[in-house]
Design a protein around this nucleic acid. Structure first.
Lengths: 151, 151
DNA sequence: ATTGGTGCAAATCCTTTGCAATAGC
DNA sequence: GCTATTGCAAAGGATTTGCACCAAT
């Protein structure tokens, strides 16, 4: 069993991570992360702002964005660029991919397996320091495919 | 040898593709595609607009965007969402991936191999109609990694 | 002659900035 | 008390819209 001082593994405790970097555990940051985790699904900054304000009225938009960026930096949250200004934040940590519908913009989780080892090797050869590999499957969702076929 | 009417293979001729859909082959569209192909590298809408205007002065921003969207739709150009409002267009048709530096935003080509068959199967099971699989490797480019280490 | 495309200007959207006030540590 | 963070308001930048004119078929 790990000793109490064994904190070498990547922690998921926001307060601890912040204090390690000399940063502050503000209620805004805690609530934003809790909200992302509660959802268990990717969400836009705007959606997060909506629910965070229920609990913490007055939370400003810049604060939301700053907190999300910080959480991404800390590795607690993934940023997903679903194209055309559709930026999503996701606290789901298991590796997974996303489908993005080109017609309606809908984004869904996809639990597939992608071998990224070769990619990371290739990028390392170019001196690139890989932090994450993002896979976006774009096309038409079931609803839009049906709508296009009917037209 | 193929007969003159054998046009079943995916053509790369813009004029033909447009006429098939009852659309017009305007000089703007032709020049924009030619410019993307000449570069052989991903470019922003703004960069394209710059060079297209050398040849076709007065070409408007909305026209650039409309043409790029059309070319993506026709399958002649790939759209790459490199995050945070960095949208790129790429006429390079061979499958390849991209590295995006989180610090400076630099985007480079990466010629790796990614097995997308399993992904496409998984998405098809969900009724999703895959058109393209985009792989973005994010992290720090060599220059930024050195700069961060020095700091 | 049709009607799809273009150019212009302005609007819209998301995100970031500057700065004084506030609240963690 | 020191200074990181917040909130406010406003700026910023990329992309899209509405509409009249033009040009490819």
């Amino acid at each position: 069993m790990p000793t109490p001082s064994d904190t070498s593994a990547a922690p998921t405790d926001l307060v601890e991570l912040l204090h390690r970097r000399g940063q502050r555990a503000t209620p805004q940051r805690l609530v934003i992360l809790r909200e992302l985790r509660r959802r268990g699904r990717h969400a836009t900054a705007d959606e997060i702002r909506g629910t965070v304000r229920d609990e913490l009225p007055g939370t400003s938009t810049p604060t939301i964005y700053a907190a999300l960026e910080l959480l991404v930096d800390l590795g607690l949250v993934r940023r997903i660029d679903a194209g055309a200004g559709a930026t999503l934040y996701d606290a789901r940590t298991e590796p997974h991919q996303h489908t993005v519908c080109r017609r309606c913009g809908r984004v869904d989780d996809l639990d597939g397996a992608v071998d990224t080892a070769a990619l990371e090797q290739a990028s390392a050869r170019a001196g690139f320091n890989t932090r994450a590999v993002e896979v976006i499957v774009s096309g038409l969702c079931a609803d839009c495919a049906a709508a296009v076929a009917a037209a």
